[in-house]
Design a protein around this nucleic acid. Structure first.
Lengths: 338, 338
DNA sequence: ATGAAAGCGCTAACAC
DNA sequence: GTGTTAGCGCTTTCAT
């Protein structure tokens, strides 16, 4: 791990320097109250003098607790996942845990590989994005009884715990919103990815109940860029020239759709209404400002961390009893694009 | 045959199952070519049968290589850092390394704490944001001879290696750009943070050379939000009603400044020119589109990873000889706001 | 309150 | 090629 270094001191050295046994140093560090103030001071001084840094790898091996939490997100370039990791890392860090981060690239088997790697690293807990995973992953994690929090979607049957919101309900809610505003010819621009698919499904279900079909653009390969949204809208207009409203599976696509409208001289929202998802800063900043579905990513990360800490017995006292399913909900933010 | 073992199997168990010694299993895993195809197969089969997952903690302790890289950024909610981490994690992951992530919250001593924690975790290498660190950090890392890459700024004297761009030169370049377009009354809206300060300094230096001063808004506390930019512009206009141009230390502030202009009926760029920094998606999407300074965050992360892998001897062959200072440069992207 | 003994699960020499 | 012998640096019991 460390390249040939001058002299890294071990606990043994601290013990000698302080005139105590190794265990005493260990205790002074991990259970300070189980050591007399005098020895504690002596040990602290020795540590200071030697610039001793405890080897947590050795500690983890012996104690079987790593104080590492693994988290797997599809990608960090989507700022909603980045925000969630921000909240997660902050809360975990405050509790003395470290965050090990992996990116699945939206691939379930890349996720499975990371899970295996993290299990090998002996993480104390795991955060997984979504509720759909490789079967081996579900099974192994359940057998292990490892604290796991699935985020960013909803299910009745989590591996262990889920903290998120229902993508299906979001789709339905947007459908309801658009129906209520009198739209009938509705399109969807989404990504080739599970949770986007669920939002599409929600939209479809609700509209079907009214006997309305949905025009769907070819799903884009994530991460989405603005141009994808523009292309999507063009595709939809070719399919359905009378299009009255579009639900875009994320704000980036939404902004792209707005661009394409402008390019074609279509008035938003008069000619066509646009709804996004996730409420990025860009949604409020673009013109016309984008109506969207807001979810609080940082808070989601924070809550996920708290649930994990609770399961690990290091939770801040404030938090209540553990619940296996925590639905943080969502909110439609109405702006100029509808 | 055997029901899922409640016990986690160790290398010993695999060895027994395969009828070989522990080392052989170890070798089959880490140096497959040093083991006969037959035993290799036997070992693989045993591993499969037992669902064995190697304990990398134990491995790290014994081998003194953790295959973990620590990275510290101020925060992940700024998508430029998130993008860099994305590139970093992707490249490291492909080489079999795991990323341990910490957030300094822009505080040098929080960074120092994380560095210590990471050293205790025996990371094989470290990524640090910026070139200004606690003295203890510089000294300790240098003594350790730990592979370190500083990113997101430039220096002649890195702890070990630096991969980034010069924030100072960016400030100067923006000043030059604005001067060349005939602006003389120039303002700056920045954050209360080192690298933003360097961009301000660059701007100031270059303008001073022409005998021009800079109107500076009160630095905002990061992470910046759009409203900060609006407030900043208001403050500048109070200071200097004749303001002709503003350099905003990041695109979020820039968009905020654009908002405030619109609110006041100021024409951009006719009445006032606005330049941002970092080229977020929002810069291209807002109206008028924001002229900005582009840096490629993902690529920066990727390069940092490659440098680290090189120092660790696991670099993809393609990459050339190590250089301690890698300047990736920047580019002014001209849009409608100037 | 402190210490002695016994590992945690793995890898690195060095033999054979 | 494969096995034997020693640890890696720390945290547990369990005594004292």
């Amino acid at each position: 791990m460390n390249p040939p270094s001058p002299q890294i001191s071990r606990m043994e050295d601290v013990a000698r320097e302080a005139g105590v046994a190794r265990v005493t140093v260990s205790r002074a560090l991990s259970h300070p109250d189980k050591v007399s103030p005098a020895t504690r001071a002596a040990v602290r001084a020795a540590i200071e003098r030697l610039g001793y840094v405890p080897n947590l790898t050795a500690g983890s091996l012996a104690s079987k607790r790593s104080r590492i939490i693994g988290a797997i997100v599809p990608t960090l370039c989507n700022s909603w996942f980045a925000d969630a990791m921000d909240g997660l890392a902050e809360t975990l860090g405050a509790a003395g845990y470290q965050l090990m981060l992996g990116q699945s690239g939206y691939h379930i088997d890349q996720e499975a590989g990371l899970v295996e790697a993290f299990l090998g690293r002996k993480v104390d807990g795991l955060i997984l994005t979504g509720v759909v995973h490789a079967p081996s992953v579900r099974e192994r994690l359940r057998r292990n009884r490892l604290p796991v929090v699935e985020i960013w979607d909803m299910t009745d049957d989590p591996i262990d715990t889920v903290v998120g919101f229902s993508n299906l309900l979001i789709g339905e809610a947007v459908a309801g919103y658009l129906l209520q505003r009198g739209h009938r010819r509705i399109g969807f621009i989404g990504a080739n990815e599970i949770r986007s698919g669920k939002r599409a499904q929600g939209l479809r279900q609700r509209l079907q109940a009214e006997g309305i079909g949905v025009a769907e653009a070819t799903p884009v390969t994530p991460p989405s860029v603005i141009e994808d949204g523009a292309r999507g809208l063009a595709e939809l207009l070719a399919l359905e020239p009378q299009l009255q409203a579009v639900f875009c599976s994320n704000d980036t696509l939404g902004v792209g759709a707005l661009f394409e409208c402008r390019r074609r001289g279509l008035q938003v929202p008069q000619d066509i209404a646009v709804v996004g998802f996730s409420d990025l800063a860009i949604a409020a900043a673009c013109v016309p400002a984008l109506t969207t579905v807001q979810v609080n990513s940082r808070e989601l990360g924070r809550r996920a961390a708290l649930v994990l800490l609770q399961r690990l017995g290091s939770a801040p006292a404030e938090e209540a009893a553990p619940s296996r399913v925590i639905d943080l909900g969502f909110q439609i933010i109405e702006r100029e694009s509808t």
